[in-house]
Design a protein around this nucleic acid. Structure first.
Lengths: 220, 220
DNA sequence: CGCGTCCCTATCCCCCCGGATAGGCGGCCT
DNA sequence: AGGCCGCCTATCCGGGGGGATAGGGACGCG
């Protein structure tokens, strides 16, 4: 079991693509290794946490592509992406996630990452994307970036106006009405109005419920 | 692509185990089918949403085991489990999840489900668990059920007393202090005390932040 | 044009929340 | 025994949150 996590699968050294897979889902790691190995020109190393990944890269290992799970131990959302990107041995870094929303995907690409991979991809698409990124391109599934947040149109976001969404984002960050007002440069009473109306629209009875509902819907 | 989602993999009809896989992660479905097919005595059908799964079962298909993803379209947390369990063709139903916590796993088992599978399982363990459940046993990874919520000891939960944890759970459900007091059968001032102290312990400055921190830590 | 919709601002009022402080009770350890 | 700690209860107070209501400005549409 431990052997499978550190085994290296070699191929003729001419144009081998070295990929580091960091994900706490053993199943996903097993799968990616099996499929990439089957391609013939990939060499893979896999670990189960961000700390292990950083340790390997800092120890001098070099990879053509590093895949980081968005919600793995030590990853801390996008902080891991930023830190890993700053390292020498990790030329290109991509994020893989089973839950993240369109907003997260966009931030990932803005950070200059090699790509964003939702786990809704098929094995075949995923292998293609990995090859694409290892070659130096930037990848993200198009249907994920425009409109439907992975699921069929977000049931919550559709009902809310632009302002209400901005206010809701503040709620999901645990901010007070006053803080939200300052951030959006509007008066506090206005914020309170938006808060109240969005409660009715999404079926929340206080700000904590609103924040949790937004998070569960995959927003922000 | 569509073919792979509905293909049935046959084996000698003597003791074939029919498994329905419902998960919106194409990658996971591909993997499970590949590994189960490799076993030789499994017949699999896979779909990408709860609605499709229910449709198949209602249409008269019969399965020895139904695997439902906890966070797939139409699943609505554990509502899908309850509804699916009530159907004729689904003798045994199990939940598979990449994010759910120990609490969720326990609820799943209490509902009388065939088992709970975190996606942190290796492919090999997962195949064994599926076989185990299809044979009629109830399965859940032991280390997931006692203490460490999948990760190594919860950094937040460790610092909190039993009471504070119970109060925190109330916060993650968007309840008011008064509601929490009623549920725990203690006075409201006591709840306020616990709330205040747990803020200091986990670094929150209001109840919304506390709820979000708890959720992010994988509690409840 | 009139109409509707969205966004902004404002005022009242009451309740809840967050912070401080001060006890009382029981169990555990030395 | 005394001391410590977790748990419970209580009171005070200021600020914030949640509900209702009212009105004005900007925009698109028929």
């Amino acid at each position: 079991m431990n052997a499978s996590q550190t085994m290296r699968h070699m191929t003729p050294a001419s144009s081998v693509l070295r990929v580091l897979i960091a994900d706490d889902h053993d199943l996903l790691r097993d799968t990616l290794e099996v499929f990439l190995r089957g391609e013939g020109d990939f060499e893979t190393v896999s670990v189960a946490s961000y700390a292990e990944a950083e340790k390997l890269v800092k120890a001098g290992e070099r990879f053509d592509l590093v895949l980081l799970d968005y919600s793995m131990p030590g990853m801390n959302a996008l902080e891991g992406l930023t830190r890993m990107s700053a390292l020498e041995g990790a030329k290109r870094v991509a994020i893989i996630s089973g839950t993240a929303s369109r907003e997260v995907a966009e931030k990932v690409l803005e950070e200059g990452a090699a790509g964003f991979l939702p786990k809704t991809l098929s094995a075949k698409s995923l292998v293609n994307a990995v090859r694409f990124m290892a070659m130096g391109e930037q990848y993200a599934p198009l249907d994920f970036l425009r409109g439907d947040d992975g699921h069929v149109g977000n049931p919550l976001a559709d009902r809310l106006s632009r302002r209400e969404l901005e206010v809701l984002e503040g709620l999901t960050q645990g901010k007070s009405n006053k803080e939200i007002a300052r951030d959006l440069d509007i008066r506090e009473p206005t914020v309170k109005l938006h808060v109240k109306t969005l409660y009715r629209k999404i079926g929340a009875s206080n700000r904590t419920q609103a924040a949790l509902l937004a998070k569960e819907a995959g927003l922000f």
